[in-house]
């Protein structure tokens, strides 16, 4: 992947002062987030912290109350979700596939807005990368196992050739073996220059990340290098499960 001078100078995505919620319930409180080109950022946080809400706000699936989002120098706030996706953001939700469509149909929809020939070409490439999917291309995605489904949703998200891959808990519901496989695949994609934002609770994904953000109660509690996170004692206790005393890390 090659970057123009302007792209190298400014971050790929810059969100600032994000405020969002559902009805009267405010979930995000002034959240800032930056992702550089080809950078992988992991978003940690306990259940209900607002990770999913933050990702959805970036994609436009949850309406923003306030704040601004820039992606490759373009403002995103006024755009529909599909327009944001077309700018180069792929989103892998926790569901991630259309259960009523076949594997092949799912994959091709991933490149819905690309020229037909391009879709064909990329589908062939992805079948090489995800050999499991080839033999079962006619099968409904709803009949796949959790792990296969995750692989399909990854392939589908990658189909459009995105600049940034946004993922909501890619490890959810997967056995440790599959989690390893997902991480390995992500490392491969990241190595090819794809930037990532991963909301996770599984710390195995930390090894992919250059930077980590911790969201708590809808506020960013920590943002910095992974190594800084690993060295911070309090954070370490609450997020790495290395508890010296039973109640450590509670507050």
């Amino acid at each position: 992947m090659s970057f123009s001078a302007a792209e190298r100078a400014s971050p790929l995505l810059r969100a600032s002062g994000l405020v969002a919620g559902y009805g009267p319930l405010q979930v995000l409180w002034d959240v800032d987030l930056e992702i550089g080109n080809a950078e992988c950022v992991i978003l940690l946080g306990p259940n209900g912290a607002g990770k999913t809400t933050l990702l959805k706000a970036l994609l436009g699936l949850v309406a923003l109350w306030r704040g601004r989002i820039e992606f490759r120098g373009q403002r995103l706030e006024g755009q529909r979700t599909d327009q944001r996706v077309r700018q180069g953001i792929a989103y892998m939700s926790e569901v991630g596939v259309f259960p009523n469509l076949s594997i092949e149909e799912n994959l091709k929809l991933g490149g819905y807005y690309l020229p037909r020939r391009e879709v064909q070409r990329r589908a062939q490439e992805l079948y090489v990368m995800f050999p499991d999917l080839v033999q079962r291309r006619g099968v409904l995605a709803g009949s796949l196992s959790g792990g296969q489904r995750k692989m399909l949703s990854l392939a589908k998200a990658f189909m459009s050739g995105p600049r940034l891959l946004v993922m909501d808990e890619p490890s959810a519901g997967l056995s440790p073996r599959y989690v390893k496989e997902v991480i390995a695949t992500l490392r491969q994609l990241h190595g090819a220059g794809l930037a990532m934002l991963i909301a996770e609770q599984n710390l195995g994904f930390l090894e992919l990340a250059g930077r980590a953000c911790i969201l708590e109660g809808g506020r960013i509690r920590f943002a910095g290098d992974r190594t800084a996170l690993e060295q911070d004692d309090i954070l370490r206790r609450s997020y790495f499960g290395l508890q010296e005393t039973p109640d450590a890390g509670r507050d």
Partner: peptide, 18 residues
């Protein structure tokens, strides 16, 4: 195919670029 995707989930379809 896009229509059936919308039938499954509007959000999922939108975030596929539809």
């Amino acid at each position: 195919h896009a229509t059936r995707a919308v039938m499954a989930s509007r959000d999922e379809a939108a975030s596929t670029g539809i």
